[in-house]
């Protein structure tokens, strides 16, 4: 039952405007990469890679959370949800199907953007294939796995798209600032602040773990067994968030 839900979520997005926006982003990415790399001889490959990965991540992040917060709220607003909630369909199947549908769309988008990036690197620099590029894209996708679940659950908590988007942005930013939070909480002495900062550190997902794209040039920074742990961590975090989302949704009245 999850499959048809995921399927129409994919159709919904493909037939919507998302691919036009994607096209625009690819143009921005190519343009920025070419301009900037021409301004920095000797480091073209690095600049193109950095711009490309940043574009992939930011675009997927924005497309992901906008899609996620609307998944359920828009169906409530359009009242299309009535027709699904009266079917012999578990509510968790609906939530999971919607969620997976967005991930499929994001995965397709990322693949498209990555292939453009690889072409760009091939033609505009003396770049050679590097497994780290692959891993940094994988970790970008895992960031999205987390943040899309957060955005979806936030939309169910706040029942407002704007609030849910703002909340997801906050989580994204604090998650990238995570290690700074830890350093800060070690430094401050006021107990209340200390507790607050470390609570934030443990509650918000640490996106720096998954920020391999920023660590491409650091040798041996993330050995494989840590990457494996980090990916597992992301999945458990997502499971908890979706579990809470499902609890909320199972109690919802329409």
């Amino acid at each position: 039952m999850i499959l048809p839900i995921a399927e129409y979520t994919v159709k919904e997005n493909i037939r919507g405007k998302i691919f036009y926006i994607l096209l625009m982003f690819i143009l921005v990415m190519v343009g920025a990469a070419l301009v900037f790399s021409s301004l920095s001889p000797d480091t073209e490959a690095r600049v193109i890679t950095d711009i490309g990965l940043a574009c992939i991540e930011l675009f997927s992040f924005m497309a992901g959370i906008f899609a996620a917060v609307n998944l359920v709220l828009q169906e409530i607003e359009n009242r299309t949800i009535y027709l699904l909630m009266t079917r012999p369909l578990h509510r968790w199947e609906y939530i999971l199907g919607r969620y997976l549908g967005v991930l499929v769309i994001l995965f397709i988008n990322i693949l498209l953007m990555l292939s453009v990036l690889v072409l760009l690197l091939k033609f505009a620099s003396n770049w050679q294939w590097d497994a780290m590029l692959f891993w940094s894209v994988i970790t970008i996708f895992f960031k999205l796995i987390i943040i899309v679940s957060v955005a979806l659950t936030a939309s169910l908590v706040f029942t407002s798209t704007v609030t849910a988007i703002a909340f997801s942005f906050m989580v994204w930013i604090i998650g990238h600032f995570s290690n700074e939070l830890r350093i800060l909480s070690d430094k401050v002495t006021a107990p209340v602040t200390k507790v607050f900062l470390s609570a934030l550190y443990y509650l918000v997902p640490n996106f720096q773990y998954l920020n391999l794209k920023d660590k491409l040039y650091i040798p041996e920074v993330m050995p494989m067994h840590i990457i494996a742990l980090v990916l597992l961590y992301s999945l458990v975090y997502t499971a908890i968030v979706l579990f809470i989302g499902n609890l909320l949704f199972s109690r919802k009245e329409f």
Binding site: F36, L39, S40, T43, R46, D50, A54, W172, I173, D214
Partner: peptide
């Protein structure tokens, strides 16, 4: 760089500014 996890890209931008 700090809040969006884009340190590497930010460094590139500063470096391009330096070169210019």
């Amino acid at each position: 760089g700090l809040f969006l996890g884009l340190r590497s890209l930010a460094a590139d931008v500063v470096w391009v500014k330096t070169l210019q």
